[in-house]
Simulated scan of single mutants.
Amino acid sequence: MSQAERSQPGRPQAEQVTPPKSAGRRPRNPLGAPGLLGSEITTLLRRHRTYALLAVLAAVPVLIGIAVRIETGGGGGGGEGGPDGGAGPAFLAQVTNNGFFLVFAALAATLPVFLPMAVGVVAGDAIAGEASSGTLRYLLVAPAGRTRLLLVKYASVLVFCLIATLVVAVSALAVGALLFPVGDVTTISGTRIGFGEGLVRAALTALVVAVSLAGFAAIGLFVSTLTGSGIGAMAATVGLLITVQILDGIPQLSGVHPYLFAHYWMSFADVLREPVHWDDLSKNFQLQGLYVAVFGAAAWARFTAKDITA
């Protein structure tokens, strides 16, 4: 049968040549088109601003280690075990006896301000930065879509949370090993664990800290959908962080403290107890999940209705 005969309008529908059903279809992916997340992470990690933020975070353990070394002259400082009080001072007092504790002291020093501030900069710029540079409308070309793009942006911020936390932990471990002796680890509970298990606890602590920043990252993403100015979104996110930290430090507001996203951040110290205390850790995870759900939904509602043609 010739091509002309197959294309005649009177021919039965069954005899007409149709393309395969799978032709032209793209695989569905909740995070967008294949490679979209990887491309976003690569773009984030290639920015000079990201290098600057990570460099500052890596420098904090170095400064802490040098300061403790100068203060003590490298000699034995506080006793092993430490009190159950503040996580930062408890770990810092043990650094001279075991440089491994510099990991926990550095995380305790960076978590209230430096780590969330870096996350706030990245999250606040996620959408607003694209809008201010004029690239947002091009990112929304099919098949990405607004929902998928928002998920990709948030996933990339979470990856940055983990990378930033690991940078602090690895830098602290290296500096602690160079400036102080390392060995078996004495937990906050007073028991001793091997150095290998201590490394596992340190990795788990870094993961807990990264998860602790998930709620704040969702807030920053929501703020980023409210404005077309990247600088404005970053400033608002960091300002909110400072405000919450101030509120969390006022004893008269103790009734609202358990609902503030930063209240259980220092619960990561419970990872270094024997056995691990999960009460405050569980409360922290639940609180972060609540913030992710609320502000993630708010960001989606705002972004899907956002006018990007202006």
Rank of each mutant, 00 (worst) to 15 (best):
A59F: 12
V159G: 06
V119M: 03
G35I: 15
A105W: 09
P34W: 03
R146P: 04
D84M: 14
R49A: 15
D279N: 10
P83S: 15
A297S: 14
P89C: 13
S171Y: 06
S254H: 09
V276S: 07
I64S: 00
P116E: 02
L136R: 05
L204R: 01
A301G: 09
Q288W: 11
R46G: 12
A214R: 01
V103Y: 03
S282C: 09
E80D: 12
Y51T: 14
L37F: 13
D84I: 14
L31I: 09
F114C: 10
E274Q: 14
M1F: 13
E274G: 03
T72R: 13
A131V: 14
L102C: 07
V122T: 02
G196N: 04
L253Q: 11
K153Y: 02
L151R: 12
L107G: 00
R201H: 11
Q252C: 04
G183D: 04
L37W: 11
A4Q: 12
G129E: 01
S267H: 09
S171A: 13
F285A: 15
G82M: 11
V157T: 11
G82E: 00
Q16L: 13
S224M: 01
V141C: 01
T50E: 08
F285E: 03
S132M: 07
A67T: 15
D125E: 07
L290S: 07
R273C: 10
V167C: 08
T50D: 03
I70M: 13
T237P: 05
L281C: 11
A105Y: 02
F261Y: 10
A108C: 14
V223D: 02
L151P: 02
L162T: 14
L199R: 03
I127H: 00
T43V: 11
L221G: 04
M266P: 08
A202Y: 01
P112L: 13
G10Q: 10
A155L: 07
L290W: 12
I70H: 08
P30D: 06
A177N: 03
V103K: 02
R69F: 15
P83Y: 10
R148Y: 05
V141M: 04
V62C: 09
G196Q: 02
G85W: 09
Q13A: 15
A262Y: 08
P12V: 09
V56A: 15
I308W: 00
M266D: 10
G78P: 05
G81A: 12
I41S: 00
L136N: 03
A298K: 05
R6C: 00
A203P: 02
T43E: 06
A123R: 01
Y51N: 08
A236P: 07
A108E: 05
V223F: 11
G10L: 12
D280Q: 11
T304H: 05
I41R: 05
F101H: 15
L36K: 09
T135M: 12
L166K: 09
V209M: 04
A90C: 12
L36H: 12
F104H: 04
G183R: 04
V271N: 01
G249S: 13
R146Q: 05
L241I: 05
I231F: 13
V244A: 09
E5V: 15
A142C: 04
P143D: 04
V175P: 00
V167T: 11
V141E: 04
A217M: 00
A131D: 03
E40R: 14
F295R: 02
V103L: 03
L36G: 03
T18N: 06
T147F: 00
